[in-house]
């Protein structure tokens, strides 16, 4: 159990360092108009937290929670684990800076747990986790969400090492670039840069 705690702590730390290292990899397309964004971009603000180009830094601890050790969520059936993961984050679904940031934060928390199943469902173009995602994103209707995500599978999951935050950003990008979906899901791409 101690091991689990320290690994979680370590993964939290690793997460923050990982993000700190990220901006070098991709440069923010600051000059590009928002809706035509080619790839999601990251930049740092405040030195330690994860930042999104469609809003301010992530709202909850969920935003820095990554899936490096995804399965550890399940390595214990104790309440303590759940407290660690959700007690702090579950009440934070109300980040109000921009609707899309709040959405992204909810998606992070959902995807960190459902990543494997979601990848399966997106590859299949349908499934329960896509319906759940639609609900998390407040999509009204959005019948073609499954097919749209399926068509962009390789964009959303470019490698097996993709982080949760990236998955979220990629999904928002895909939805934002589809005119009917962006309306149905209320995703507006706001460039904060």
């Amino acid at each position: 159990m101690k091991k689990i705690i320290s690994t979680i702590a370590v993964s939290l730390l690793a997460a923050s360092t990982a993000f700190a290292a990220q901006p070098a990899k991709k440069t923010a397309p600051a000059a590009k108009p928002a809706p035509a964004m080619a790839a999601p971009a990251h930049h740092m603000s405040g030195g330690s937290s994860y930042a999104r180009n469609y809003g301010m830094s992530g709202c909850g601890l969920g935003s820095i929670w990554i899936d490096k050790n995804h399965m550890q969520i399940f390595s214990s059936t104790t309440n303590m684990m759940y407290t660690q993961i959700f007690a702090v984050s579950s009440g934070t679904s109300n980040c109000v800076e921009t609707p899309t940031t709040a959405k992204a934060d909810r998606m992070d928390k959902y995807i960190v747990v459902n990543k494997l199943a979601l990848a399966d469902d997106i590859a299949r173009g349908e499934g329960e986790t896509i319906q759940g995602l639609a609900q998390i994103m407040n999509c009204q209707g959005a019948e073609n969400l499954g097919s749209a995500l399926q068509a962009k599978f390789a964009t959303i999951f470019p490698s097996h090492e993709v982080t949760v935050n990236d998955i979220t950003d990629h999904i928002i990008t895909v939805v934002g670039q589809d005119s009917s979906l962006s309306a149905a899901c209320g995703v507006s791409m706001v460039s904060a840069l």
């Binding site: 997106i122 590859a123 299949r124 173009g125 349908e126 097919s147 068509a151 599978f153």
Partner: peptide, 10 residues
């Protein structure tokens, strides 16, 4: 999964 998605069928 990449292969599966590329089939494009639900």
């Amino acid at each position: 999964l990449v292969k599966r998605a590329s089939l494009g069928v639900k």
